[in-house]
Design a protein around this nucleic acid. Structure first.
Lengths: 333, 333
DNA sequence: TTGTATGCGTTATCAG
DNA sequence: CTGATAACGCATACAA
């Protein structure tokens, strides 16, 4: 690999001059610029980004930490982030924290020590305090899918409560009154918020909340399956089951069918997230749209604005969920 | 951020000594090691990976290039690769080439200039020659999902022809004789290979190949949908449709249903890839398993073996597809 | 076992 | 507009 030094020698100029033409902007006479350009061409010069990063303390690289590489949710985040950063000639370094506290911390350390100019994090295991503390540091951070009041301006999240509310409201408006709810794990903030929204809708429609109609799932297909089984075995009547995410909804649909319950004629199922396969199920799944990709894009825009000083509209910190009506909910009206 | 220099000062030893204890292995007296360790602790010293990489010409980082961040196929590759590399304390830098030649090349340059120790590539737009040439370079490369004879030892791919064969054989064994085939884009090598396998199975079962029963799709849902429509509108009879990937299969199922054709009673559908949502469809999709994740793992193992000299079993360059029987194919026997 | 000196490829701060 | 030269933070022969 040719170095900047070899180029300078070949072009008969100083090292600094080559650096100037490589980094555009600075003033160099057209004549020497041409000499340098030619030399670069001849040697097929490619700047060493590592050296550049060490010397300039800038990497043009933003670190992204997701929980998994797998799945449309994280895929959406990554592709959203990348699509806008790419246009600004910034790159991303992605790692996966796998929902383990130590790993998330390790990954953050890794990204920092790699000289990332900024961080976009989707972390679940690490504490709020840790993140608040991290935000005190010199490296700019954007936190996805998590709302931390003290650093609200660095968070980009979905209004989960509203999502839970809209989901239930939709089902109630279709005339259902016996509504079961399969929630996410209680320890997860978003699961709690969605449930709160569920209760608010119930109240608004004067349907009494019944704890027996709530089953705590795990956000996995098996959770939805277990939820339906639980309600059936305990003779808890319901004409509709709202699941706190689409994955559980698919499990619910499958298990309902196994029990000779037609969806949506015998039982309606509603999801949350609007993941890709929601439109592949049968019946296609009515759900709440979680605009992950847009949120990833917004995170990237925030970085572009704050770190790279590129002109951008204001950041939107809270995104609104919307009902996506498909065919898994029957109207009783 | 504390530097190695500050640590050495605080510990009252030389720079080199600190470097030695940081990088384990080398001989340092227990006493000084403790001094250094204490100093590191006090200063919360974190090595600067960029500087380390520049000095050592090693980054403990392997570059991964996929076509998209999105989807279970690429997710499988990334998570497979990461899971094994992680255990060896290596990190990955991922970029997406989006199936565009220039971008793929840019990304490869980027990864190289970032000092990656090795590359794992899933590229589609770049030519064989380019890759062969790339393999001549000093940086070790593993190529996924592509078979290039001249550099077969650096390729990890699926036997697509066999997959196409197995798919069709399965359907024929179920008693179908009027078998339609919705292929992938002809310009893609895997699409061609799968079709070749299809023909081989037909021949083996003495079913005459009929070009009219082949529709060229695009590997997207819409392609499967268009394929079914095409056959229906042109009165081409078929009791089963084999799709060259699962995505098209879901499109095919939906469109069949829209035309009042029950799957699998009126028409059987068979896929390829065994993506995650294949088990979420209704009916669940019979398909060919493409062990992406295992192949990603194998790629990582190859790197571990070749680059980091870690003891590993031999690499498996060609993976075998398998039939995954679910409920979308009816037995006519 | 420990320390010294030099290099890795750039950027950046000065002079000129 | 251009050229020395000192950082950047660490690894590593070579000496001691």
């Amino acid at each position: 690999m040719a170095t900047i030094y070899e180029v300078s020698k070949l072009a008969g100029v100083s090292l600094a001059t080559v650096s100037r033409v490589v980094n555009k902007n600075l003033s160099v006479s057209e004549k020497t610029r041409q000499k340098v350009l030619k030399a670069m061409e001849q040697l097929d010069y490619k700047p060493n980004l590592v050296a550049k990063s060490l010397a300039s303390n800038r990497s043009d690289c933003v670190g992204v930490l997701v929980s998994e590489f797998y799945g449309s949710f994280y895929g959406g985040i990554m592709s959203g982030v990348e699509s806008v950063l790419r246009k600004a000639d910034k790159h991303i370094v992605v790692t996966a924290g796998h929902n383990e506290e130590q790993r998330e911390k390790d990954d953050i350390e890794f990204l920092i020590s790699r000289n990332c100019d900024a961080l976009i994090l989707h972390v679940e295991a690490v504490s709020d305090e840790y993140l608040i503390n991290l935000c005190q540091g010199k490296i700019p951070v954007i936190i996805l899918n998590r709302h931390i009041p003290k650093i609200a301006d660095r968070c980009i999240s979905l209004d989960n409560e509203l999502g839970g509310y809209l989901a239930t409201k939709h089902v109630l408006e279709k005339g259902h009154t016996q509504v079961a709810y399969i929630s996410g794990p209680k320890r997860k903030a978003d699961a709690q918020e969605r449930l709160v929204g569920h209760k608010r809708a119930l109240q608004e429609f004067n349907v009494e909340f019944d704890q027996a109609r709530v089953y705590e799932g795990d956000y996995l297909q098996i959770g939805g399956s277990a939820g339906i089984k639980h309600f059936l075995e305990n003779d808890i009547e319901f004409t509709a089951a709202i699941c706190a995410n689409d994955e559980m909804a698919t499990g619910a649909i499958a298990t309902a069918r196994e029990n000779n319950l037609d969806v949506p004629n015998d039982v309606s199922i509603f999801g949350f997230d609007n993941v890709v396969f929601a439109s592949y199920t049968y019946p296609t799944l009515s759900t709440i749209n979680y605009p992950v990709q847009d949120m990833g894009k917004m995170a990237a825009k925030a970085i572009l604005k704050q770190v790279y000083k590129i002109d951008m509209p204001d950041v939107q910190n809270v995104f609104e969920p919307e009902v996506v009506e498909r065919n898994s909910v029957k109207s009783l009206n």
